[in-house]
């Protein structure tokens, strides 16, 4: 028996490649915001069902990420940042990625519906479909405002977490949805500024590629102002208390300062864009801080 043979067109992908297809690092933020939505919701949910709800939110996000990479396999080959992903690197065939993404989508939605309620499952289904069809297929290759509208897909987890407990949606999850929705443009465009050559070579019309870095800095500043208003909305609407208000003031103040540095910067060399890298990194921490503050606030108020 021989142990060496000709290389087949596609070899069996490693299980780690399937894990990589779900973008585990992005999933941490999704899981955290979903968990916060679940923890602040009024009412009680059995811990096993709560765990299942968070698991389904995570698997749904992983499914959307897998389908996103299935759609973008060709353009991912052209970008340094994404070229080593399982599909563009040739470690997995496209059909496996499609089956994996569709399978996880059905599994996450049906399991969430069976374990909690069908309203939460419907919102999860909408978020997956929105990410794949509205953002990835429709908006991303066509308009520089792709992530403004597409950002809604990432804003659903706290709403799903809340709905898993209550079976409905009220003002606070909508306010948290708005916070993530308006946080997405400055978060994503800070990254897009310093990987602009990558997007340009892949032909993806991200704002820095289409409108230039000056206009992108201006829009980062504008959306940061709107995001700051969304951050204070829960306090102004008396949905949260002094703990969240204080944390929001400090954390958003730092965000505004960092966004202002990006707005004022005239750096054109991506390798030297320190303010942009700092804003991108801080924006991730910011969302963890804000959602953590909502949970602590609700527990203190209770």
């Amino acid at each position: 028996m021989t142990t060496a043979t000709l290389k087949p067109a596609y070899t069996a992908a490693d299980w780690r490649d399937f894990v990589a297809l779900t973008k585990p690092r992005v999933m941490t933020l999704v899981v955290f915001t979903g968990l916060c939505g679940l923890l602040i919701a009024p009412g009680h949910i059995h811990p096993v069902l709560a765990f299942t709800a968070i698991l389904c939110i995570a698997i749904g996000a992983g499914a959307a990420a897998a389908l996103n990479q299935w759609v973008e396999a060709d353009s991912d080959k052209l970008m340094k940042r994404t070229a080593s992903r399982p599909l563009p690197a040739g470690r997995m065939d496209k059909q496996s990625a499609l089956h994996f993404g569709v399978g996880l989508s059905f599994f996450s939605v049906l399991t969430l519906g069976l374990a909690t309620n069908w309203f939460a499952a419907a919102v999860l289904a909408v978020s997956i479909l929105f990410y794949v069809f509205v953002y990835t297929i429709w908006l991303k290759p066509r308009t520089a405002q792709n992530i403004v509208i597409g950002g809604a897909a990432g804003a659903f987890p706290p709403v799903i977490g809340w709905a898993a407990v209550t079976g409905d949606i009220s003002a606070l999850p909508i306010a948290l949805f708005c916070l993530i929705f308006f946080w997405t443009p400055p978060h994503f465009w800070a990254l897009a500024l310093y990987i602009r050559p990558d997007y340009a070579s892949a032909g993806i019309p991200m704002l820095p590629v289409v409108a230039g870095e000056r206009e992108t800095r201006r829009q980062i500043w504008g959306y940061t102002a709107i995001m700051a208003m969304a951050a204070f909305a829960p306090v102004l609407l008396k949905l949260t208390g002094i703990v969240y208000g204080t944390v929001a003031l400090l954390a958003t103040g730092v965000f505004v300062y960092m966004a202002f540095r990006v707005f004022r910067s005239q750096q054109l060399d991506p390798a030297q864009m320190r303010a942009e890298r700092s804003l991108f990194k801080y924006s991730i921490l910011y969302l963890f801080i804000m959602f953590g503050a909502v949970v602590v606030d609700r527990w203190v108020m209770a």
Binding site: T2, T3, A4, T5, L6, K7, P8, T11, A12, A13, D14
Partner: peptide, 11 residues
């Protein structure tokens, strides 16, 4: 470069 059948089996 020949492809190792054992590596595929292990995977």
């Amino acid at each position: 470069v020949p492809f190792d059948q054992d590596a595929i089996r292990a995977r």
